[in-house]
Amino acid sequence: MEVFIAQVINGISLGSIYVLLVTGFNLLLLVAMIIHFAYPQVVVFSMYIIWLVLEVTGNNLILGALAGVTSSILLNLISAPLFQKVMEKRGEVDINSTMVMSMGIGMIITDVLSHGFNKGHPIAFPDTLAGGEAILRVGLISILPGQVSAFVVGVIAVSGFFLLLYKTRPGRAFRAIAEDPNGARLVGIPLLKTGLQSYALSGLLGGLIALLLAALIGSASSGLGEQVALKVIAVSIIAGLGNLVGGLVVGLSLGILEAIVQGYISGTWSNAIAFVIMLLVILAKPTGLFGLKL
């Protein structure tokens, strides 16, 4: 039982990160109308930037955090014109092309990370980032500062995001474009400008996620992006592509499921089991459990 509770706690913090990733991914999907397959890879790239800045500045956390967020926003904004060029006609064919283009971006990021940083070795973040000792420890159950921050920041970021989406002017424009891009254009909502806002916002979210991942996992490798990307896309497909609330539920469930499996089955297999379960769900319902919002 103790193992179970401990793993549920782990799972909630991991799940919070999945939720944030799926939210950023869905935001781009709904507003910019792209399938940014490599969004998690952008996040992992920002983790590497954080690591680099921490190395150079002698573990200046504020500079590291700033660099992480900035790099992720910049990377998103740089890719925006490329995506928009491919997305010109806004048809189904074009959405698929954006996915291919995103995979191209993912290829570049992964390869740059595997040669360009730390001679290709996995990177490790200083313990200060994870916040040091456990806050609470009861038998096998321990709560680490990194886990708490992942959960708290996750909750704040997601509620902030939904608040923005439902209570502000840009959020209203986001929803309008998500529902009907042509209708939104007729009303006078600038598609390009609003699209760019969504790139910037998902970049900001990505920077936050990079920080949380660094604090929670404490290390990263060039292959991490691909693995996380797979899970994030799988989660968003299972939830129904573009379904924000579904992404919340499925993302959190995947985190908890994965952690529980990890508690009982050895490392290499636990990941595979998570994938098998996701695969079975996708095979059974390729359009998602909660319906497509696209």
Binding site: R172, A173, R175, E179, G183, A184
Partner: peptide
Amino acid sequence: VFASMSVLDNLLL
């Protein structure tokens, strides 16, 4: 009109 949004949201748009 944006069918999935509220009347007020539509007007504000």
